[in-house]
Simulated assay, not measured.
Amino acid sequence: MINIIELQKMKQFSKRKSSIGQLQLIPGIWINGKYFWLQNQMEKVIYEEGLIIKIKQKPIHSKIHYYRVFVSNHSNQAKDVKILAMHHFQNVNQDSLAFVSPTEQRIFHHSEEKVFLVNLKHNESEVKEYTTMPLWNVYTDQIWSSLDNGTLRYQPMAKGPAASILAENITVYPQKTETLSSWAIIGKNKREVLAIEQALLKIH
């Protein structure tokens, strides 16, 4: 029989799970002046470039959403691409704050007294682009300072319905697959989510 304390713990777990579930990942890819988002899909084929991008979620912990992004090159030429990891809340009316922290080189989302850390990683590379945007701009060309070069428009903070975008430049060689990791971590404060991420990086 479940006592009151256990029931409260179950409710708290369910609330944490649903809270992190509200912050969704939309992966994307830029190549040769064009970009594509994987909205409501786990795989996309870019026929004219011979590329396939896939995303798989890996269950790790109730406070972590962890994804692997696979980019496969089926052409006979090396492809220089930019992988995008956009995060925003499912509720477009949700009041939140997204900001880039230059000190931690991370993006944080604040909403309903919760802190979310989002990140993107390819091998040991720490060189990436960060930006935040009002939600109504993120599916438009407004995210780019140069679409031809694949350079994001830098905005360190966005309030209200907001999104964040991380980007990583990679080269995918012919008949090869490159793998990236992206994650979102929920906690009570910045210190907690950074500690969880440090533990995550030791394992993965």
Rank of each mutant, 00 (worst) to 15 (best):
A199N: 14
G33K: 12
Y67V: 01
A78P: 05
Q90W: 07
Q41I: 07
P27W: 08
F99Y: 15
Y130N: 01
E112I: 08
S62W: 05
L7W: 12
N137M: 03
K56L: 04
V138H: 02
L166C: 00
M42I: 02
A98E: 04
Q94L: 07
S181F: 14
K114L: 06
N137A: 13
V138N: 04
K34L: 00
Q175N: 15
I46E: 03
G33V: 06
S111C: 08
H74D: 02
I4D: 10
N73H: 01
Y66L: 14
S164I: 01
K114C: 01
M10K: 14
G187R: 11
G50N: 07
P156F: 10
I196E: 00
E168N: 08
N32E: 03
N189D: 15
A163D: 01
K82L: 03
S145D: 13
D80P: 05
P102S: 12
H110M: 03
T140M: 03
A199C: 05
K58E: 07
V118H: 02
K63E: 04
A167P: 00
I29S: 09
W30L: 00
R68H: 14
A184L: 05
Y47E: 02
E48G: 01
K114N: 05
H61D: 10
Y47T: 09
A184K: 09
I53P: 00
G50K: 11
M133F: 15
N32W: 00
L7C: 08
E129Y: 15
Q41T: 15
V71R: 09
H88T: 10
H110K: 12
